[in-house]
Design a protein around this nucleic acid. Sequence first.
DNA 1: CTGAAAGCGCTTACAG
DNA 2: CTGAAAGCGCTTACAG
Lengths: 377, 377
Amino acid sequence: MAGIRDTANTPPTIYDVARAAGLSIASVSRVLNGQRNPREETRERVLQAVAELGFAPDGAARALSARLKEVVGVAVRRASLVEAGEGVFADEDESLQFPDMINRGMEVVAQRRGFDLLIRSVEVGDHDTGKRILSLARKSDGLILHDRLLDPAQLARLSRQVPIVTLAGVPTETTANVRGDNRAGMRDLARHLVRDHGYRTVAYLAGHADSPDNLARHETLEAEVTAAGGTFLAGPDWHGNYMAVGGARVIDKLIDARAALPRAIACANDQTALGVMSALAARGIDVPGQVAVCGFDDIPVARHLRPQLTTVRQPIQELGATAFEILHSMISNGEPASREVVLPTRLILRESCGCPPEMAPPAWRTAEPVAEGRPRP
Amino acid sequence: MAGIRDTANTPPTIYDVARAAGLSIASVSRVLNGQRNPREETRERVLQAVAELGFAPDGAARALSARLKEVVGVAVRRASLVEAGEGVFADEDESLQFPDMINRGMEVVAQRRGFDLLIRSVEVGDHDTGKRILSLARKSDGLILHDRLLDPAQLARLSRQVPIVTLAGVPTETTANVRGDNRAGMRDLARHLVRDHGYRTVAYLAGHADSPDNLARHETLEAEVTAAGGTFLAGPDWHGNYMAVGGARVIDKLIDARAALPRAIACANDQTALGVMSALAARGIDVPGQVAVCGFDDIPVARHLRPQLTTVRQPIQELGATAFEILHSMISNGEPASREVVLPTRLILRESCGCPPEMAPPAWRTAEPVAEGRPRP
DNA sequence: CTGAAAGCGCTTACAG
DNA sequence: CTGAAAGCGCTTACAG
């Protein structure tokens, strides 16, 4: 009962402040929120009482009364056990750098507006996914959804009640979407592989089948490769899940089945490429000598892999920052500043496609890396 | 005014449910919270109304009334511009894998208890750091603090009002701390470098000076190296900041000053080692041939670096999970299940210390990696 | 077992 | 400019 923390030592309320300042709670509230213009003396007395008591308003009470929580709910997909591999504590995939960096981008701009991020992971396919997202929504002023967490009907229903921005979806009548320019990015990559390196057989190792980004990357790569007269590989044998294990599994199966590998593999994202390179290395297959491997995203590890990963850079933190800003506009104005935002991507050539090693220091050591971003045949 | 979202289409309240079910709001609340045992018919009517309306209780109202927000505030340190380097959008350091993985570990166990994480970054040294953390506390039921965010006096004061668990501090009368076993981990690493590899000069590239973890690692390394008759280097020239830029800067300065480099450098954490290896590579210095480099943490990228990074593994996600569980015990019982938890660490030998390449597949592809964790001279 | 009412700690019209 | 009062949407004694 007598805990360490003095149970009587509960945080002060606005009533305590009012009493200490000899004023009403209304005056305290006004001073604290900068409403009207209180007399200088009133101001000072309030501020002094606040400082002495160490007062800060209770978030719940404030939210209930002001009808604003200053909280944005962020739902991230948690890999089901089936996807992540059996019995393995998949450290590697638990480190989803892409979503983590997006969240960081959101957080930075959220601070400026006085908002915080309420993070919740949801296991997709769970029958109560809808409920889990709804309850997250009721703890926040709006939602940012990573991945495809809800089916279109659920999304349509929920988005009529609460502002929602998606990060891996498509704009709808009631939701906004933020993404990178998949087609431009994949087009640049495809042309580099086919024209600059002359690869004739190129495969696409897919991400989630229900992901519009995945679809766009797939279609663009296919179009470019076939337009150039090359052979394009994709389909059931090439289905990954945006995670390293997914990429590794595809390669393992292919090799076990003694299938011929393509000259180049473009992966749905960097995490997948990481798994692919690892699986190839385990079989003694040289990258890029025998098989070239490329990713998408340019997560920070990409340049530290062996070989360094050629990829398409997305402005990851800006993706998050933009998603927050759009959501914020929906929360404050009732409608989004924009219904769809597409951020530019950029081809980053490193070793894994067959280009020479990158000699420049990593990007974080120089203002503008010189060796990156220009095609080197 | 007429936004896309029907402004009238506001989420249903418990009154709407009560009306639809022909019952009082008290009954609705009881059914929803499983209090007492309502009549079966009552239950059903409520549940049906809830489903039809898509009702979920407002988080703020629930929190205010129940005196429980089911939210845990997580404060992470944001690098100041000075630390992160001038004018650089430090992507690399913005991807702080260690804290992100800790948060993920917290999040997973938090879900089981119905809690969510409210994430806020705070710039340390900011004069209003205390206020920022206080206001975060008032939006949550308790706080988990990464890094040293508050000075002891601030911490003591705040922790009397709200449950706090630290992750890089020391236990106090009112707070609990969770950490890895720094001494055991560093001792194993030190002995490996000195005894197995026979290195005679070893430096410690420090993290934040105010970090107890940093201090313990420093002291242990120094004790082991000198006990073995080796030369130990540390001090002002070797001050990093737990980030890649910090490690790189130390190396750059040393080389610019034409200082002799030690045979081995043990870094305060992996992120620092990453910067060190990058700086050495840029100067054409071979790792581990000329200088051995080791880290601490074993973040997921460590095994993908070039050379693969030898390091001390901390159970990163368990660190987060444990911090949450302790905090939860403080929230529900008024006092912590334990005031200090020390989790075991484990030496992971890879290439950067001079050991042969790791041939086993990465940990996430096997249940228990065979080639790791045993000293190989 | 159920309902009417109080109360959680704020903000904000409404008077004065 | 300031205060008394209502109200935000719930939960929970308290009656019945």
